[in-house]
Design a protein around this nucleic acid. Sequence first.
DNA 1: ATACTATACGAACGATCGTATTTACACACG
DNA 2: CGTGTGTAAATACGATCGTTCGTATAGTAT
Lengths: 205, 205
Amino acid sequence: MDAMTTAADGRRARGDESRRQVMERAVNLASVGGLDGLTIGALATETDRSKGGVVALFGTKEQLQLATVEAAREIFIERVIAPALTVPGGLDRLRALLDNWLDYSQGRVFAGGCFFAAAAMEVGAQPGPVRDAVADAMADWYETVRRIAQRAIDAGELAPGADAAQLAFEVTAILEGANSASRLTDSVEPYARARVALAGLVQPA
Amino acid sequence: MDAMTTAADGRRARGDESRRQVMERAVNLASVGGLDGLTIGALATETDRSKGGVVALFGTKEQLQLATVEAAREIFIERVIAPALTVPGGLDRLRALLDNWLDYSQGRVFAGGCFFAAAAMEVGAQPGPVRDAVADAMADWYETVRRIAQRAIDAGELAPGADAAQLAFEVTAILEGANSASRLTDSVEPYARARVALAGLVQPA
DNA sequence: ATACTATACGAACGATCGTATTTACACACG
DNA sequence: CGTGTGTAAATACGATCGTTCGTATAGTAT
């Protein structure tokens, strides 16, 4: 029993590829119909698989939901956070982060807009592992914004006495507000309003 | 056939009372489990009725959802908007409106926090009459904030050149952000942050 | 008295839900 | 080569979904 079982297993590779394909659909279905509206049967049909096949890959529905949250998290990091980390820390990085988020939401990386904004409202009042996973992801995001903002403050590029946590709250609220309003009004105007608001919140000292 | 059929109909009165009782439960169930998670069977069980009885009162599930949105709207108006309209127009009325909203959300008038914030994220990507009803309610709310803010601007109690629509967007985003964060973190801290943010947005000229 | 309407129930419908079981096949490894 | 394990389908299970139906009761209207 090797501690590191050789990665060259045709079955594992095949299963991983299947999981990847199913997940690609799952995150989009969930971003539209919610994590609860994401059903094993519909997921199987849309990926040309049997229900049993999906169950074999992910187990119970709750495990499927947790895997979906994790997959969405990876996409979010790849699209929003990682590119911002290539920008020098400070105000520029903070601006890049927020721009990335607006592009991610407006560009409908997930069919239903921001996956986590929808998930947070859906499971926010329903205790359980799925809610915890979503709450963790949101806390991570909030903390990322706070940390990057703090660095901009420390660098003297924002008001010296500014409260990074307060700024993170306001900034994330504006972002989510744009996402929500845009979906409900089928308009991109809220994103323009968000950019105006953010310009006011994130400006040189 | 009178144009105005007399209101004194024992059957109507009995039905209206039944509808009222069922709706009282429906809005709370929906605020926790969503408009889709609101099932006829569960609603019947919780109100000690048969499924057929609930169907007789509301018709299809979609009609039940529409009635639920309308009932929530009335409660929202009663708790948030109406009390603010008793305050003299201007900055005071705007502040009263926002305070009422925070009390309404934090006080959990609906078990799951703001009914419309949850409903908007749930049905925002699902076209249909229910989405339209929620969008209407949200547009009304946004317009109410904008109108009251405009009056404060006209009265010279806010920055003269301020854009009421932009202010309404920012203010509602902060409110929803507090509601969402509070639910996910089981904390009232977001409401304090919201009050700080609103104090900055809504301050005398 | 009669016809009509508005609740309300209880039972059943077909569909779909999540899950479990069984079987078949592909590949790894001793 | 044979044994074990992971992938996947097929099938079936009980539960619950939304809806429909038939029936009963109560109140209104003619």
